[in-house]
Simulated scan of single mutants.
Amino acid sequence: MPDIAELLRFDVSPLELIVRGSLMYWLLFLLFRFVLRRDAGSIAVADILLLVLIADASQNAMAGSYTSVSEGAVLVSTLVGWNWLLDWASFRFNTVRRFVEPPPLVLVRHGRMIPRNMRREYVTVPELMASLRAHGIEKLAEVKMARMEPDGGISVIREKKTDDDDDGSKVKPLV
Rank of each mutant, 00 (worst) to 15 (best):
V52D: 10
L85R: 11
G111D: 07
K144A: 15
V108F: 00
V156C: 02
T95K: 11
D87V: 01
P103C: 03
A57M: 06
I114T: 05
R147S: 15
T67L: 10
R9Q: 14
W84P: 06
W88G: 10
T67I: 00
L105H: 05
F91S: 14
G153T: 09
V35D: 13
R92G: 07
A55R: 07
S65N: 14
R133V: 00
L50Q: 13
I157S: 13
L17Q: 02
M62V: 10
P104H: 06
D39H: 07
R112E: 15
P14Q: 03
L36Y: 02
R119K: 11
V175K: 15
L27V: 09
N60S: 14
L86D: 10
L174I: 08
I157F: 10
A134M: 04
L23N: 08
M113Y: 05
F93H: 13
R116V: 07
S65G: 09
A63F: 13
N94M: 07
K139P: 03
H110F: 09
A146V: 00
N94W: 09
A89H: 02
G21Y: 02
R33T: 01
V35T: 12
E6K: 08
V45E: 11
V171Y: 12
S77N: 04
K172W: 10
L49M: 07
L31F: 14
V108M: 04
V69A: 13
S77M: 05
E6C: 00
S68R: 03
V171S: 12
L49I: 01
M145H: 12
V125M: 12
V143C: 03
A55N: 12
M113F: 03
W26F: 13
H135Q: 11
